[in-house]
Every structure is written in structure tokens, then in C-alpha cells.
Simulated assay, not measured.
Amino acid sequence: MAQLLPVAVRDWDFPRGVASVALLVRFGAERGVPRDALLRGTGLPPSRLDDPAAQVDAHQELTVARNLVREFGDPPGLGLEAGVRYRVTTFGVFGFACISSPTLRDAITFALRYLDLSFIFCLPVVELADDELRFELRDDGLPHDVRRFLLERDITAIHTVMHDLLPGGLHVRRLQFRFPAPPDPARYAEVFGFRPAFGAPAHHVAIDAASLGQPLPQASAHTVALCEAQCRELVSRRRARSGIAHQVRDKLIRVGGTLAMEDVARELNISTRTLRRRLEDAGTSFRGLLDEVRQALAEEMLATGALSVEDVALRLGYAEASSFIYAFRRWTGTTPARYLRAGKRA
């Protein structure tokens, strides 16, 4: 009988370290995209990427991914090229705990228990059967424009890290993608060692259950115990910091992105100065959250086709359409009119 393994998170909206954002920015910069273009709309100063202890909001990483996809046009396989760069060391103490685990099964169990220390967006449903371990990665809750990129990135990163854990190789039985086959699937076969199936009912990976008992070459009971203690502390600290960002975002969404910082602070019964400091501790800012909410609401309203640019500007609290157009260009790199035309062509 198949057994579902417990997973620590239920959605992708959890705080995370800055390493993944830094990696994506380097990835884009190596392909000629300026760092400022990739950080547009995140509220993150470039200096934050150099601080290994910095925390970011999941929406900030999502914005970087959207900027990256927008710059390159979302070609099939873009996520593969980003995903192969995620090594076990990219994940810091979380990665060291996995690589120090006694067996592959212990490493996977640990990873699922502390999944909110990863950078994942496509959440896994993990099922252990008699002869295989099955992962289904779900991308339903992600914006359409980055689903393929993030799915490719996440599944390739998982594959790469598992090979770091077991340098001798990992027997993958099946790999299936829900999206249609690309014109040239050769790069997929090169990355995964065989050609995946495309057009499947779900994004699905199956590995041989016999692999789970393999001892890991760098196993160390002492190291994994020390790392787990640090992971527990890190999770607790991040969750405490991130609560304020969720509260502010929820209040802004509820009123359509029209509250001032002073109004939000008053509703939370704290001073404006305290709110600003707590948001900084959480790796974000009021301006960044306001831009994020307004951008999401603007794209949603424009996509309906029922509202003019002037109507959307008014509903988001802009006195003039020109101010909204300027802000929209700053968020997305394009104007609302071009955004609408691109949506109609798609």
C-alpha cells in the first residue's frame, strides 16, 4: 500500500534566503540582462544579494523569475539552465544537513520536514509505494507566465541535488511533464539522462525505492544533528519575521492597494516606525508590498478586458492615468497598452 510522506509547507508563499534570488540574477546577468532589470519591482537593493544571512519574501523571488522570463520570452528549457545551477551547497545549512544524512531516504525525509528552508515554488506530493518513490509537483497556484520556468527549475534543481547526494548516480524510473514536447527535447535528455514524457496528466517523477537505502558518502550523525538544530532555529526565526509581511499584504489586497503606510500601522496598532523596521527585518518594505499588490491587481483587471487603463488607474488610487502608466512600466518594463496587446496575441 502506498504511503504519503508529510510535507512541511502547503503553499509556496514562505520566506526564504536570498541565495536563490542572487543565483537567478547572476544567471540573467551572464546572458546580458542588467541586474536592475531583474530586480525591478522587488524593492531589493543590489547590496542585499551579497548578504548571505538576508531573508526575502517569496513574492520577491517570484518577481525576479517573472522579470527573467519576460526578458527571454520563456523559451522551453530556460528553467533547466537555471535549475542545474542549484547545488546542495546553494541551500546552506539545510543542504549540509541533507548531505550529512545517513541514507537517501533520511535526506528526503529531512528535506520534506524543513521544505520551507528551500526555494521551491512547485509543491511536491510524495508517495512511497512498494518499489518506487513518486513525486508529483504541483504548479496550479503559480502565475501562468512563470509556471513552466519554475516547474523546470524546481524539478531540475531536485534532480541535481539528488545527484550531489549520490555521486554514483540515481535511478530515475519515470519523468513526465504536463506541458507539450518542445521542438527539440535534446537538452532535456542531456540534463536528465533520458528523454522525459511530455503531455502527461501531471508533472511526475518516480525513482527506484531500492535507491532510498543507499548510504550517503558524507554521512555524519554529529553534523546532521548540529545542522538540524540550526534549521529549527532558522525556521522559527523566519516565520516570526514573515508574519508582518502577510498581514500588510492582506490588508492592502482587501482595500485594493489604496491604504497608506500610516493607515496600515494604525490598523495593526503599531507606530509607522515600528512597521517600517519589522518589514525591513522580514526582508521587504511597505513600498515593495504596495507595488506587488498593485501590480497583481492591475494585471488581473487589465486581463478581464472590461476596464480601460484610466479605470484601472482610478481603482488603484492613482489621480491620473499617466502616474499609473509610469508605475506599471516600472513594475513590468512595459506599458499597460502593450501588456494588453501581448495578452491578446497569447
Rank of each mutant, 00 (worst) to 15 (best):
Ala111Val: 03
Arg105Ser: 13
Val248Met: 05
Pro52Trp: 03
His59Pro: 00
Pro336Gln: 10
Arg187His: 13
Arg40Ala: 15
Cys122Phe: 06
Ile120Phe: 12
Phe27Leu: 04
Arg329Cys: 06
Asp164Met: 09
Ser100Val: 01
Val172Gln: 00
Leu104Trp: 02
Arg254Ile: 06
Glu136Pro: 07
Gly17Phe: 02
Phe286Tyr: 14
Val93His: 06
Ala22Cys: 06
Gly77Asn: 02
Phe94Gln: 05
Gln176Met: 12
Leu316Phe: 11
Leu226Lys: 10
Arg113Tyr: 05
Leu123His: 01
Asp164Leu: 08
Asp116Ile: 05
Ala245Tyr: 05
Leu4Lys: 07
Gln218Ala: 14
Val69Cys: 12
Ile108Val: 13
Pro183Ser: 14
Ala189Phe: 10
Pro45Phe: 02
Gln247Trp: 03
Gln55Pro: 03
Ala157Asp: 10
Val25Leu: 02
Thr332Ile: 02
Ser308Thr: 15
Asp116Asn: 12
Ala186Cys: 06
Gly333Cys: 09
Leu252Ser: 01
Ala206Trp: 13
Gly305Val: 01
Asp164Trp: 10
Phe192Ala: 06
Pro196Asn: 08
Tyr339Pro: 03
Asp263Ala: 14
Glu233Leu: 12
Leu112Lys: 07
Gly193Ile: 02
Asp281Val: 10
Ala221Met: 00
Thr272Met: 11
Ala303Ile: 03
Gly95Ile: 03
